[in-house]
Design a protein around this nucleic acid. Sequence first.
DNA 1: ATGGCCACCGAGGGTGGA
Length: 256
Amino acid sequence: MKIATWNVNSVNVRLPNILKYLKDYQPDILCLQELKCSEDKYPLEDFVAEGYHSIHACQKTYNGVSIISKSQGMDCHNNPVAVNDNEMRSISATFGDLRVINFYVVNGQSIGSDKYIHKLKWLEKARKYIKEQLSSHRKLVVVGDFNIVPNENDASNFSPNDILCSDKERKALQAILDLGLTDCYKPQDKVSPYTWWDYRAGAFHRDIGYRIDLLLGSSSLLKDLQHYEVHRDTRHKSWCPEQPKTSDHAPVMITL
DNA sequence: ATGGCCACCGAGGGTGGA
């Protein structure tokens, strides 16, 4: 069983890249964030033609999350975590005995801003939702773009004064982990942990990045964890010649 | 080399991303 998460930065612009990813990597479950399209523009038929099911929580211009899967998801919750009702940042479904929760966490912009306060509120609501879901699902994974750097060595330029790195954000993530979840990340020799690199200043080329895309598993899922991999190849222009403009995030996949 | 912002809306530049 392969589960992946990918902030694609527009599902329609990135459609060729996503279809190639489905072909090349054959994920059983692919969770997308930042669809940036309305419901009627979601490319469902393209995923169906590839042999996949899909559920989606869409919003025009901003946000949007979906789950693409080889089997049909059951008991789907459409945007269960909402502080502002118009922001589509969450979706969940059950596949066999596995509950999958897909989040696009608020960015927060800068420490102390209104968006930062909103981020912390959103994370607390997310924590409560996960706690409730854990009470009825032993095997559970929470994936997505968390917009939080878990540890100091997960960012090239870590500073507690910066957004994504602040104590309050990291404590909010820790409160979620304290529900009984574990970060599936496994360090690899000579490979940086990052999943996001700024488009600007050749950050990817220089490997100046952040690890902010996470997969958090319950203990009954973690015992089956075999592999963890960041698919950096999708960041190369040559990987998908049909759409050489890549997402600034790389997909992250676990194998169970 | 794996490369130097990108996508949105809308008609051009402002906004948001992280």
